[in-house]
């Protein structure tokens, strides 16, 4: 795996989900989700039925990437928070651990102040989980090197040809 690859194991996935669930309840939000900076959705909680979260993830990442570009143009390192205000729903976007994006969608049951406050707490929790993931990936990589294992080293050409075969 290259050092940029993101690996997620059950234990940390559950911790992430719990942190998002707590944020959802504490901030009275409608939907909370976490996306990596390349647009891959990591986890989501809340009312998911009415929303296309895959598209949401990709557009959020595009939005953050464009804003990062703007920041650098004017000499800023990054804008850490983006906020979009709508008639009914609002979107609060922030960066966690420099590599993932936390998105909170909320309506008038919550306020921007409350969301910001709760996001700050959730961010600290999530940063701890991502630090743990980083440590785990490094140690497993060392183990895998020692044991010469990679779950995908066994992929055969037939396996690949079977994809798209419908």
């Amino acid at each position: 795996m290259s050092s940029q690859d993101l690996l997620l194991y059950d234990e940390e996935f559950e911790k992430i989900r719990q942190a998002l669930q707590r944020l959802l309840e504490d901030a009275s939000a409608k939907l909370v989700f976490l996306v990596d900076k390349n647009g891959q959705q990591i986890a989501a909680v809340g009312d998911l039925s009415s929303l296309d979260t895959t598209s949401l993830a990709s557009l959020t990442a595009g939005n953050v990437a464009a804003t990062d570009g703007l920041a650098r143009l004017i000499g800023e390192k990054e804008f850490t928070i983006l906020f979009h205000e709508g008639e009914k729903d609002n979107i609060h976007i922030s960066i966690v651990a420099r590599r993932v994006i936390l998105v909170v969608i909320f309506d008038d049951r919550a306020s921007l102040g409350l969301v910001r406050l709760r996001v700050r707490r959730a961010t600290a929790e999530l940063e701890a989980v991502f630090a743990e993931i980083g440590r785990k990936v490094e140690s497993r990589k060392a183990d895998a090197r020692a044991a010469q294992e990679n779950p995908f080293s066994e992929i055969t050409d037939d396996d690949i040809d079977r994809l798209f075969s419908e």
Binding site: D5, L8, D10, F13, G39
Partner: peptide, 15 residues
């Protein structure tokens, strides 16, 4: 950057 999610058993790739 391949994203391998062992919890959801997914590999995500970007083309």
């Amino acid at each position: 950057m391949t994203f391998i999610n062992y919890a959801a058993r997914e590999i995500n790739c970007k083309i």
